[in-house]
């Protein structure tokens, strides 16, 4: 990472300040977003209530009774002028067990036909890479991860499903995601994970954060169906310690 960051500071209404980074979707750019966000969080600025990151921007929610737009902007500019080494983000790599077959991967057959790639090759391509979490978003902590093998790139489905089961693994464009709750969706579903990556009763609810990496590990249908807390514990000891 270089020390010079070009950031544009704009208001989003009267209680949110947005820092716009370079308008590109890349791991380098997003890592810059994450490390600047963690610098802002660590600063504990009086009046700032939360710091939210997206693909290439940071939203800083503030209480304008305590600090107004211009002083906050100046404070952030000064803070981010020099990019400190200690702001390096901590990230983890999580291995997620996934069953890839037609029963759980509702679109696996279709993807195989559209792309003229065998299902085994699709599974090999998907499990060969590590995916970077660019953002957790939508309505309930959906991780947006990339980048999927170029040979598997597909536009979103023209006719989105009304209900995609929780735990479904989707691909669209060069991204992959995990459906954290049952919801409508237009991604191509190629597999399913029995692992809980999102639980509304936990704080924080997400297992994955922006800046983390994810690997998919192929498991059998039988293993997936018999998944329980003990199996999850064993899995985490094997892969996620």
């Amino acid at each position: 990472m270089n020390n010079k960051i070009k950031i544009t500071y704009v208001p989003m209404g009267d209680q949110i300040l947005v820092l716009q980074f370079e308008d590109v979707l890349s791991i380098d750019n997003n890592q810059m977003v994450q490390s600047c966000a963690s610098m802002i969080r660590q600063e504990n600025i009086n009046g700032v209530s939360s710091v939210i990151t997206t693909m290439a921007s940071i939203a800083v929610k503030y209480d304008s009774l305590i600090i107004q737009f211009n002083p906050l902007k100046k404070m952030l500019q000064k803070l981010l002028l020099v990019h400190k080494e200690q702001a390096k983000i901590e990230n983890k790599t999580i291995t997620v067990p996934v069953v890839f077959n037609e029963r759980f991967g509702l679109d696996l057959e279709e993807v195989s036909q559209t792309k003229d790639i065998s299902k085994d090759d699709i599974i090999n391509m998907i499990t060969a890479k590590k995916y970077y979490v660019y953002m957790v978003g939508f309505i309930h902590g959906v991780p947006y991860m990339g980048n999927v093998d170029k040979r598997l790139e597909l536009l979103r489905k023209s006719n989105p499903r009304l209900k995609v089961p929780k735990g479904s693994i989707g691909i669209a464009n060069d991204m992959t995601n995990i459906y954290t709750l049952e919801s409508p969706g237009g991604w191509h579903i190629i597999g399913w994970t029995p692992m809980e990556v999102f639980d509304v009763k936990k704080n924080p609810p997400n297992l994955l954060s922006a800046g983390d990496y994810v690997r998919y590990e192929n498991i059998s249908e039988e293993v997936a169906e018999n998944w329980d807390k003990i199996k999850q514990k064993e899995w985490d000891q094997q892969w996620n310690t």
């Binding site: 939210i52 309930h140 902590g141």
Partner: peptide, 10 residues
């Protein structure tokens, strides 16, 4: 749930 927006929560 204002404080949970950073986790991608509405």
């Amino acid at each position: 749930r204002q404080k949970f927006q950073q986790y991608g929560i509405s």
